[in-house]
Nucleic acid binder design. Structure first.
Length: 552
DNA sequence: GTCGGAATAT
DNA sequence: CATATTCCGA
């Protein structure tokens, strides 16, 4: 209703189309601001008095995402009134005045930001951040209808893990210094440009404000990479973050969180507390702050002057290839195509902070070993040719940014994979996630469910998603069908109906085994061989869901 | 010097 | 075992 998948997809250029309520008595000023906002494809509704604006809000007919309200000496009352009344709406105050007390009052009344005029484009461009922030923080309480899509959109994006690694060191908010800061700002009357746009309510860990609370402990301590060689070392692989966020949103299947991406730091000094075992029997509790604080946690100042610690502190940290990490790895590999899956690129695609090329190389080595094991000999045929210049790569060099463009191809898989690692309790600490607890017969024997087909989503082969009876993924409407689709992907109509509707295990087993063990053969599903994976790539790029409905 | 990849070490 | 480190050829 409020926000379907299509809606989300439709809002892929997210900030655009943001509905901005502009309240400014000065028509010239209003026009100016308006035009700037419109240049960035925001939709602006201008009002010159608070009553009109408020009634527009209450009339439901229009929903706004954010408000920009001008305050001046003569009408400050009206501005405040608006501010107090429209609490649901993230409201940015703006003024020519430099009055600290006014600014303070605005903030106190709930303004999300105070911007001094003139409002340059830089300042206006990022106002959407307030919208997102609000959408997240409103959690249980008031989340106005207009913000829901925003939130879901963001959640969705975060689930894609397109950038979860992005947010690092928590901004040091020094809240208590607010006033001094403002005051200073006060001084540089013209230099205001130095601060870039809105002071951005850092989406930071995204979930932070919710219940995970101590997510920040994952933030790495890259700030102190004293001994040069460290750089790779001070790792905190925080793939968890994205998921935490996901978890936080009740929407998302709560049950699952099988990732414990921890980098266990093996402190030579052996602080005893073998963090490695920290997993405890309750995986879902695993993210307890204590773990992180001891392991990947940021040493902060405390550790800096820790005299005793010999600072060997973070030395050899072992990368724990959790389901999450592994999933990223797989995605990267599949995206690159087997031929091009080399450590550096994989690393790049995984975008996991702290992970080194060596780590990846090592894992890749294992990957290949297992894979080779599956395909005893033949894989030489379709493998390597080292110099192969042929790139079908739609290797997207995706810049890391706070809100990257939507990539549909990541959407479904992510969700699916996500749902599949469910069963938090079922694999305690050491159990390999790819040796899933309860897979039916069609799983390759050795448990390494690597995806032999570059163009194909590993989720189909590599990560069987068995929709639990009522399971964790139930909240994703498409996940169930997605599962089938994933298997039947691209085949158009190759599969017997029974496959989808009543999966006969023998059939599945046979098909899968054959496909896996003989990749050089035409796929039984009617798939083209990997040589046409550009096609597959395209399909997958569009999301598995585009596959024909399971009945045909 | 880089890198990827295999061998070897932990 | 899984991962890290080392070694070696390109």
């Amino acid at each position: 209703m409020v926000c379907t998948t299509n809606d989300l997809l439709g809002w892929k250029d997210f900030p655009k189309g943001l509905r901005v309520l502009l309240l400014d008595e000065d028509s010239n000023s209003a026009a100016e601001i308006r035009s700037k906002l419109e240049e960035m494809d925001y939709i602006v509704f201008t009002f010159c008095n608070e009553n009109d604006a408020l009634s527009a809000i209450s009339s439901k007919s229009e929903s706004f995402h954010v408000a920009i309200v001008e305050v001046n000496t003569s009408n400050s009352h009206g501005s405040f009134k608006f501010l107090e009344t429209a609490k649901d709406l993230p409201t940015i105050m703006t003024s020519n005045m430099h009055c600290l007390s006014t600014m303070m009052k605005c903030i106190a009344l709930g303004a999300v930001e105070f911007l001094r005029k003139p409002l340059c484009e830089d300042k206006l461009r990022n106002i959407w951040q307030h919208v997102v922030h609000k959408a997240f923080n409103s959690e249980g309480s008031v989340l106005s209808e207009s913000l829901k899509p925003v939130k879901e959109s963001v959640v969705s994006m975060l689930q894609l893990q397109l950038e979860n690694v992005e947010s690092k060191n928590q901004i040091l908010v020094e809240t208590e210094n607010v006033s001094p800061v403002r005051e200073n700002d006060h001084e540089h009357s013209s230099g205001s440009d130095k601060y870039p746009a809105p002071s951005t309510p850092q989406l930071k860990q995204g979930g932070r404000s919710l219940d995970d609370g101590d997510c920040q402990d994952q933030t790495n301590c890259s700030t102190e990479k004293e001994s040069g060689e460290q750089d790779g070392e001070s790792k905190s692989v925080e793939t968890t973050c994205g998921n935490l966020i996901a978890d936080n949103n009740v929407q998302v299947g709560s049950p699952q969180r099988s990732k414990e991406t921890l980098i266990k730091e093996e402190d030579d000094s052996a602080d005893g507390s073998k963090s490695e075992t920290n997993m405890s029997p309750h995986p879902e509790k695993r993210n307890s702050p204590s773990n992180f604080s001891s392991a990947a946690g940021n040493p902060t100042r405390a550790d800096l002057h820790n005299s005793s610690g010999t600072r060997t502190n973070r030395k050899k940290i072992k990368v724990d290839w959790t389901a999450d990490l592994h999933k990223k790895f797989l995605q990267a590999v599949e995206q690159l195509g087997v031929d091009q899956a080399i450590p550096s690129r994989i690393l790049e695609l995984m975008k996991v902070e702290g992970l080194t090329r060596h780590n990846v190389a090592s894992h890749l080595q294992k990957y290949r070993m297992h894979r080779r094991h599956i395909l005893p000999k033949e894989d030489d045929r379709r493998w390597p040719h080292p110099g192969d210049p042929m790139q079908r790569g739609y290797y997207q060099h995706k810049p890391v940014m706070a809100y990257p463009p939507y990539h549909p191809n990541h959407a479904l898989p992510t969700n699916q994979v996500y749902s599949m690692w469910a069963q938090p309790g079922s694999h305690p600490a050491g159990v390999q996630m790819w040796g899933p607890p309860s897979y039916p017969a069609w799983q390759p024997a050795d448990g390494w469910l690597w995806n032999p087909y570059p163009g194909m989503h590993a989720d189909a082969w590599g990560c069987p998603v068995i929709p639990p009876p009522h399971g964790p993924c139930s909240s994703f409407p498409q996940s169930a069908s997605g599962f089938h689709n994933a298997n039947a992907v691209d085949n158009g109509c190759g599969m017997p109906q029974s496959y989808c509707d009543h999966p006969a295990e023998e059939v599945i087993d046979k098909v899968v085994r054959e496909a896996i063990s003989k990749p050089w053969l035409p796929l039984p599903l009617g798939l083209k061989s990997p040589s046409t994976d550009s096609v597959l790539a395209e399909l997958s790029r569009q999301g598995i869901s585009t596959v024909p409905p399971r009945t045909h």
